[in-house]
Design a protein around this nucleic acid. Structure first.
Lengths: 344, 344
DNA sequence: GTTGACTTCCAAAACGTTTTGGAAAATTAT
DNA sequence: ATAATTTTCCAAAACGTTTTGGAAGTCAAC
């Protein structure tokens, strides 16, 4: 539609001056600037994004790769995080593009095409794996990026993560303190780092207390995955009296599995993530969630700082995880006092 | 990094020829083309996106506005739809950017800045309202767009929607056939077109059967909204024996509300959307969902056709909604035969 | 009135592509 | 052999900005 040239001509000014007036340079007089600004807002002029991007050599774009995972794409609240992130990026003139991995293409190829086409200034990686090839690619190309979840990469990189280890360790200890000795774990796929850390926390607490850590089954991080895993867990010789589920979705599946099992209703359950639905399950789901206000905003901030050139080492955040007691973690009738039940 | 000029020089060819070879024009010999293609893939050359966009006068971008709604942003499966849409757009070289409405800015202003900055080739509007100012803006500017959900706009525009009217009408008739006479509705905000059509369907069936349609309460389209609305509905003088909830999330809230009420467990419930969690509630939620395979892909197709210049009238899809019976719609013990219960 | 500093403006060069309008070379038709 | 056609290539112009490197003009100091 309207461009700088037309605007300049209609004002009797040069393109340069109009451009600089709008960009707030000091070498244009106050009177001229006002004239330009008024004319610009009157005609609704906005600089052509592609032209600016080309000239400034910045794509003004950040991509987030969405792995087409088994089942659905991510936790239901994930879009909220992305939305908050996008909103904060927009304040710095950056837009967030979502980049699902096309069928028959690897995540790696997709990243590469974004990088080689200079289509982005930075990337956000989610559902990070412990060994994530995307991380290596971006590191070798020198593209700024932030991961949601740690990796076991050699070189340090920017990330934001919840302290799932401590969270599950503490939750397990809480169960132990409540008298449980058979504490199971419905684990997520161990290639994902979030699932791995949560399992380690559970395991750590059990080993510390000399309790068995064999009551574990892995499943997809979905309702169905949790359902199937819990079914298996409850069909063994030794049945847990409490179960930590790697995600709230898995916990919802586990709750259903327990409903279908005699005495399943006295097995305690804890989830992770505090999804909106978790307060509305039957029983309401005790869960845990990352503390700190707006995760999306924090991610955006890390991305901006990474683009600004800050060193990855200084861009690593691990947020504590807090326990949200509702009803599901206290379904076991207080065990009758035994010799070992001395607390309180 | 690497650009056309360097690539051309290293091959002893002109920029033009290299560009045309890669774009598959017929005026470059097979031998030369092969040489170019090989060199390009060896160096990982990809044309600079900003430059191409500038020259081609296409942003290669589609934006979806995310209204920062009350509560969370959209139905939990919404990201799955967007992801599928983005994947299909990518096949045509388009990327999908998510554009949440910044605090203190209207959706309108946001659309305008995207349009005036020529930052997009098309827009996807979701959570459309019956009277949606965004629609008018885009129509007046001549920007291709597709809405998820109809509007009551004068001019026709491209949209994809589920037939919520028929779905809720049929579901209500099913309840009537089952002997229910007091059928309530937990409605979504009526400014949203999806909520409005669903209510109309419910109302239509009741009026047709000469039944009361006063058992209705409106709430936010969230678990909490459904919880609060159901509580109100069940606190009236006349209590419904069945309730249609505008969304599955509201239904989950309603289920919880009913658990807290004596005899709430004999009230039948139906939701809408078939969220992943709905099969795992207690009781499993009977619900409805849009038929047709991949909604996201269909939206992408409509967007591409809109960009291609097809007339809006030809880009309107209303998909039937199918009923998914699970357990929650049959919680009422078959009413004892009364005078009016003559069916079957 | 010359010098220097400051203010205000601008022409032209970039950014890296795609596209236009030929030109040279090779092939075919006459 | 020449003309006509086809094939293959390319120089230069555009896309709409931002940025560079001044050029005038104004003002104050000497």
């Amino acid at each position: 539609m309207s461009n700088l040239k037309q605007l300049a001509r209609s004002l009797g000014l040069s393109i340069t001056t109009v451009s600089r007036a709008l960009d707030g340079y000091s070498d244009v007089s106050a009177k001229t600037r006002q004239r330009v600004v008024e004319a610009a807002s009157a005609t609704g002029y906005q600089p052509n994004a592609s032209a600016r991007r080309l000239r400034r050599r910045r794509a003004e774009l950040v991509a987030v790769t969405l792995p087409t995972a088994p089942g659905h794409i991510g936790p239901p609240h994930f879009l909220d995080i992305l939305s908050a992130c996008a909103e904060h990026l927009a304040l710095s003139g950056l837009n967030l593009v979502i980049a699902p991995v096309p069928r028959g293409q690897s995540e790696l190829e997709m990243c590469r095409s974004f990088v080689d086409g200079q289509r982005i200034d930075a990337m956000l990686l989610v559902r990070t794996k412990r060994h994530d090839e995307r991380v290596e690619l971006l590191q070798s190309r020198g593209i700024p990026f932030v991961t949601h979840g740690r990796t076991e990469s050699r070189q340090p990189h920017a990330f934001l993560d919840g302290d799932g280890f401590s969270g599950f360790r503490d939750a397990t200890q809480r169960f132990i303190a409540d008298g449980h000795t058979l504490i199971g774990h419905v684990a997520g796929p161990q290639e994902f780092s979030f699932a791995h850390y949560r399992r380690l926390g559970w395991e750590h607490a059990l080993k510390n207390a000399n309790l068995t850590s064999t009551l574990i089954t892995e499943g997809d991080p979905t309702e169905h995955g949790g359902y199937a895993a819990a079914k298996i867990l409850m069909s063994g010789m030794i049945k847990p009296t409490a179960i930590l589920c790697a995600t709230d979705e898995m916990a919802v599946g586990a709750l259903r599995a327990l409903r279908e099992i005699p005495e399943g209703n006295i097995v305690s359950i804890v989830g992770h993530d505090d999804l909106p639905m978790s307060a509305f399950t039957d029983p309401p789901l005790s869960t845990m969630r990352m503390t700190g206000e707006d995760i999306g905003a924090r991610i955006a901030s890390l991305l901006l700082r990474a683009i600004g050139g800050e060193a990855p080492e200084t861009l690593q955040e691990i947020h504590p995880v807090e326990f949200l007691p509702r009803a599901s973690h206290r379904r076991t009738p207080r065990p009758a006092a035994t010799g070992m039940d001395t607390h309180k």
